[in-house]
Design a protein around this nucleic acid. Structure first.
Lengths: 213, 213
DNA sequence: AGGCCCATGTAATCTGTTACATGATTCC
DNA sequence: GGAATCATGTAACAGATTACATGGGCCT
């Protein structure tokens, strides 16, 4: 039940509409939580019914009317309670890692392409996060901002996002290079250059290694 | 629907029982996918019904009987298909990041403790992953293993896990240090040493900053 | 005697995703 | 003229979590 708290946390920096929240929680930007627009509209409705957020209708000239939400005192208290309670451990769930786990038994070509694609996505996010960080700290240096700036929470989570994507990019590039090398080696030799090979168990077929590109 | 493929990928290295799978997919160990035991038993049942895995019953003397599963040809084909299809992007969902996002509006004490706790957990995982990597590569150096070893998939995903937890630990330690500093500064001064403060918007209460320890 | 490990599940609930729906405005 | 942006949802389905159930053996 952390989506509600993620929403509360996102609204701490000012009023936002469901639509604006949805943009902030999008995969491409979200550095502390991801959610789809439908979830956010639903969660906002629940939060409002429970009095943890309140919305005010804003009519616009050219655009459709929207509702801007802010955190109430009760909402802040709820966030406080959440922050003090134990966190559940975070876990890994990534398609791409599953594919790499199976790398030795699967066509290398498409996999390499996907790993490289992921590296590019990570690179884009790195750029984005760097820009966001620069904007948040303004004129101050990072050390100074983190020491004396007000509101460092979003900065800190963005730093985590940045480091994560850097790690992602580096790993993806290295992984792609390794898989390429191995693929080339197998394709180029009638006798595979693999020392110390053992017998595969009865239920296991030898690994495939086709794929060009 | 990637759990099924994660299971298939996990079974590539040999037969496993539901129970053994469950241990491999546990939060504390899983470096490429997490799932609960119940999910795995259910998924194994589905996979078996669809002919993607097959199990054989193994009776034990002292322990209850178990079923060891392996991937069938159809299962391998399905994994192949999955690996070639586009990956859905991975996203962030972490309680602790939500809390840090709200750090400026929330009691710092418990939060700092949780961030430090997470650093310790990360450190433990780092140790674990290092041991696993050493075991996988055996006598070979890393470069050599990655070039010529058979079965590098699990090694690569474990490398990602290692880097992720190192990033985690580093960020947690830095974050904890920063929050501590700021908390001490506020507690120690009647006048906060924050330059360039602005007026908070009408709907926003000034940030709290109690917490000792 | 109490607790943990092995070993396997069912059932109820909660959370998240996919598909669908609507409608005006601005940009290319 | 077509796509993207703004703006908000509903409904059906898939996936994940929580709670519960069972039972023998091993360790302290």
């Amino acid at each position: 039940m952390a989506l509600r708290h993620a929403v509360l946390a996102a609204l701490l920096d000012g009023e936002l509409s469901g639509y604006q929240l949805a943009k902030a929680f999008d995969v491409g930007v979200a550095n502390f939580w991801h959610a789809l627009p439908q979830q956010l509209y639903a969660e906002l409705a629940r939060l409002e019914k429970e009095g943890l957020v309140a919305g005010r209708r804003v009519v616009q000239e050219t655009r459709p009317a929207k509702r801007l939400f802010h955190v109430t005192d009760a909402g802040l208290a709820e966030l406080e309670r959440f922050a003090a309670a134990a966190s559940k451990p975070s876990f890994v769930r990534d398609d791409l890692l599953v594919k790499v786990q199976a790398a030795d038994h699967v066509d290398a070509g498409p996999l390499i392409r996907q790993v490289e694609e992921r590296a590019a996505v990570a690179e884009a996010k790195i750029d984005l996060f760097r820009r966001i960080l620069r904007k948040m700290r303004g004129d101050l240096g990072e050390e100074e901002f983190l020491r004396a700036g007000r509101r460092v929470g979003p900065y800190l989570t963005c730093l985590r996002g940045l480091a994560f994507e850097e790690g992602n990019r580096d790993w993806c590039l290295r992984t792609a290079a390794i898989l390429r090398d191995r693929n080339a080696a197998v394709a180029g030799a009638g006798t595979p250059a693999v020392p110390g090979e053992g017998t595969a168990p009865a239920y296991r077929r030898p690994e495939v290694a086709r794929a060009e590109r």
